[in-house]
């Protein structure tokens, strides 16, 4: 029964160095996490660069997928942030495709899920919020602060409203990063626990007959996780658009 203890649902999230590198006392080792980030970039480039290389009027499957991704993200930005938001199109598209490929790739057995690292999702969220603040201040200057002061509120309530707006703005990077991270983490732990349960039952003599039950559960959960993977990438992208809309039109 050694295997039963050995199946550790947390092990899959461990970042292991493949090529240890240290520069100036800082650990920049090439890890499995970095490897999968490179794979994500490689797959995304394969889709968007190789897939469109034939420039066909009638698209191949790969080119069709690339076009669908393009038009999907473009329409998301246009509905959430207007046509002015299209200046952030490469940014939003990169985030969407990075998160999507990371989530989907994570469902491949033995693959590492980059977005299951809070530091990754938080860095992406900070990048989004940083872009929002940077562009908002660059574009509107002090007027950007009107984001926290909705018009048409009675002066009595205004301090509270401003306080609430500030809190909601500050909590955005946290909610944005934790939502994605927690979804990925919980999904993968659940999958692993059910998978491990199958293995344990198979090694437990007569109990092996009920092993198909958790196996079926794993199959169902895998389908569900596929949905979550795509949905969370979409949610991340559309929230990015909504926040960018605040930077473009801060006056509500």
């Amino acid at each position: 029964m050694a295997a039963e203890q050995g199946i550790d649902p947390i092990h899959q999230f461990r970042v292991e160095p493949i090529i240890p590198i240290h520069i100036g006392g800082v650990d920049v080792s090439f890890t499995n996490s970095a490897l999968f980030m490179l794979i994500i970039v490689g797959l995304a480039s394969l889709l968007m660069v190789f897939g469109t290389s034939r420039n066909a009027l009638v698209p191949s499957r790969l080119q069709s997928a690339a076009e669908m991704g393009y038009e999907f993200v473009a329409s998301t930005i246009k509905t959430a942030a207007g046509t002015e938001g299209m200046r952030f199109f490469p940014f939003v598209f990169s985030i969407f495709i990075f998160v999507l490929f990371s989530n989907l790739l994570g469902l491949v057995p033995y693959a590492f899920t980059v977005t299951s690292q809070i530091v990754v999702t938080f860095a992406l969220a900070i990048l989004v919020i940083g872009t929002v603040i940077g562009y908002g201040v660059y574009r509107h200057g002090a007027h950007f602060l009107h984001l926290f002061v909705p018009s048409g509120v009675s002066p009595l309530l205004l301090p509270f409203i401003v306080l609430i707006e500030v809190i909601s703005f500050v909590s955005r990077p946290i909610s944005l990063s934790v939502r994605l991270f927690a979804n990925m983490l919980a999904g993968h732990i659940t999958l692993k626990v059910f998978g491990a349960f199958v293995a344990s039952l198979l090694g437990a003599g007569a109990f092996a007959v009920i092993a198909p039950l958790p196996l079926a559960m794993t199959v169902i959960l895998t389908g569900f996780e596929l949905l979550v993977a795509v949905l969370q990438a979409y949610v991340f992208a559309i929230l990015t658009c909504v926040y960018l809309n605040d930077a473009i039109h801060p006056g509500h």
Partner: peptide, 28 residues
């Protein structure tokens, strides 16, 4: 693991952004 993850995230995401904005998206 934060420092190495962050460094590689910055590198790979920057690469992705450049490839997407300079090659992939203009092509589509």
């Amino acid at each position: 693991t934060f420092s190495s993850t962050l460094v590689w995230l910055v590198l790979t995401f920057a690469l992705l952004y450049v490839v997407m904005s300079k090659v992939g998206l203009p092509r589509v």
